[in-house]
Amino acid sequence: MPNESEERTAPAPCRVTVTKEGPMLVEGPVEVVLDDGTTVRSDRFAVALCTCRRSRTYPWCDTSHRRRGRR
């Protein structure tokens, strides 16, 4: 007879997609712990996390990275 821990299944992994010049796409819902220790949460099915730190809604991407000129 299997014990209780053997009957549990592992949760499905969270999918994270790294884009070359844009945000990091994360399948939600997600909780993000910021560098000051605060936690923000999104219950959306997918979120875009800012990687350039230009977003006015950081840590969520607001497409501010698009305004950067290419060299």
Results as ranks from 00 to 15, higher is better:
Ala10Glu: 13
Pro29Lys: 13
Thr63Cys: 10
Met1Phe: 06
Val32Lys: 12
Thr39Trp: 02
Arg15Ile: 11
Arg70Phe: 09
Val47Leu: 05
Val18Glu: 15
Gly37Glu: 07
Ala10Ser: 06
Val18Pro: 04
Pro13Trp: 02
Asp36Ser: 05
Arg70Lys: 14
Tyr58Gly: 09
Pro2Gln: 11
Val30Ile: 14
Arg71Ala: 08
Ser55Asn: 02
Arg8Lys: 15
Asp43Ser: 14
Thr19Leu: 13
Phe45Gly: 11
Asp36Leu: 06
His65Ile: 02
Arg54Asp: 00
Ser55Gly: 09
Cys61Phe: 00
Thr39Arg: 08
Val30Trp: 03
Leu25Asn: 15
Ser42Gln: 09
Ala46Gln: 15
Val26Cys: 07
Thr9Gln: 15
Lys20Gln: 06
Thr9Met: 07
Pro2Cys: 02
Arg41Cys: 10
Pro13Cys: 06
Ser42Asp: 05
Arg68Glu: 08
Thr38Glu: 13
Arg41Asp: 13
Ser55Pro: 11
Asp43Tyr: 00
Thr9Trp: 04
Gly22Lys: 01
Arg67Thr: 04
Pro13Leu: 10
Glu31Ser: 12
Leu34Met: 15
Met24Thr: 10
Thr51Ser: 07
Val26Met: 05
Glu31Trp: 06
Pro59Tyr: 01
Ser64Phe: 00
Glu21Gln: 09
Pro29Val: 06
Glu4Cys: 01
Asn3Cys: 06
Val16Pro: 11
Thr63His: 09
Arg70His: 14
Glu6Gly: 01
Val18Asn: 08
Thr51Glu: 12
Cys61Pro: 05
Glu31Cys: 04
Val26Thr: 03
Val33Tyr: 04
Thr57Leu: 13
Gly28Met: 08
Phe45Ile: 12
Val18Ala: 13
Leu34His: 05
Gly28Cys: 10
Val47Lys: 01
Ala12Tyr: 07
Ser64Leu: 02
Gly22Trp: 00
Cys50Asn: 07
Phe45Ser: 14
His65Met: 00
Cys52Ala: 04
Asp35Thr: 08
Cys52Gly: 10
Met24Arg: 14
Arg53Val: 04
Arg41Trp: 02
Glu27Ser: 04
Ser5Val: 12
Thr57Asp: 14
Cys14Met: 15
Val16Leu: 13
Asp43Lys: 03
Glu6Lys: 13
Tyr58Leu: 09
Gly22His: 02
Val40Ala: 13
Arg53Phe: 10
Glu7Thr: 12
Met24Cys: 15
